[in-house]
Simulated assay, not measured.
Amino acid sequence: MKIKEIIVVEGKDDTTAIKRAVEADTIETNGSSIGDAVIEQIKLAQKARGVIIFTDPDFPGEKIRKTITEKVAGCKHAFLTKDEARPKRGKGIGVEHASSEAIRLALQSVKEEMEEYISDITFDDLVDAGLIGGSQAKARREKLGISLKIGYTNGKQLHKRLNMFQITKEEYDEAINRIIQEEKN
């Protein structure tokens, strides 16, 4: 599988895992304090071939994703679940621990940012579905992120991400109904 876009990852081990799974070029951020030179490199990559942000499913990875998204418009996003990013042995979480199959699936399910899309999904819909403010909210948001392949978000960011990736009300409703049905079983 060959990827046209340049994939932005956190470090060398992530690049190794990506290249083991697919044929692609990468840019490494080398941590969460991304310098201006790396941002300029990502901007050039975005203009030339497009960019896929593929960071770890943890706080630093989300921080990197947010920083790049704020400074480089129109990026695409690939996500792994925390389970997919855990090593078979030992501790840690990251793209470098994911199987080649999980990486390929994440890259096949890339989501594209869209600034101007306004979803039919309201904040009240999120509250009503128990995604914000309830005892099961965090677990439900995690399941929703996996189902829609948009990654985990906190309650504040969920509505923004649903809009950013143009998740339709129908897709959202189907995912929520599946989650609620699974909880009943």
Rank of each mutant, 00 (worst) to 15 (best):
K2I: 14
V9C: 04
V9K: 01
G11D: 08
K12D: 10
V22D: 05
V22P: 01
T29L: 01
S32M: 13
I34H: 03
D36T: 14
V38H: 06
I39T: 05
I39W: 03
Q41F: 08
I42N: 01
Q46C: 04
Q46Y: 03
K47L: 12
K47F: 07
I52R: 00
F54C: 02
F54Y: 02
P57V: 01
F59G: 07
G61I: 03
R65M: 09
R65H: 11
R65Q: 08
I68Y: 04
E70V: 10
K71H: 11
K71A: 05
A73V: 13
G74D: 13
G74V: 13
K76T: 12
K82M: 11
D83Q: 13
K91I: 12
I93Q: 09
E96K: 15
E96Q: 15
S99H: 10
S99R: 04
S100K: 11
S100V: 09
E101W: 10
L105A: 13
V110T: 12
I118D: 15
D124E: 11
D125W: 05
L126R: 00
L126A: 03
L126E: 01
L126K: 01
V127M: 08
V127R: 13
G130D: 05
L131D: 02
L131H: 02
Q136D: 10
R141L: 03
E142C: 07
K143P: 01
K143C: 01
I146F: 07
Y152W: 11
Y152K: 00
N154Q: 03
G155F: 00
Q157G: 09
L158W: 01
H159K: 14
L162N: 00
Q166I: 10
E171Y: 05
Y172Q: 02
I176H: 06
N177S: 11
N177G: 07
E182L: 14
N185I: 12
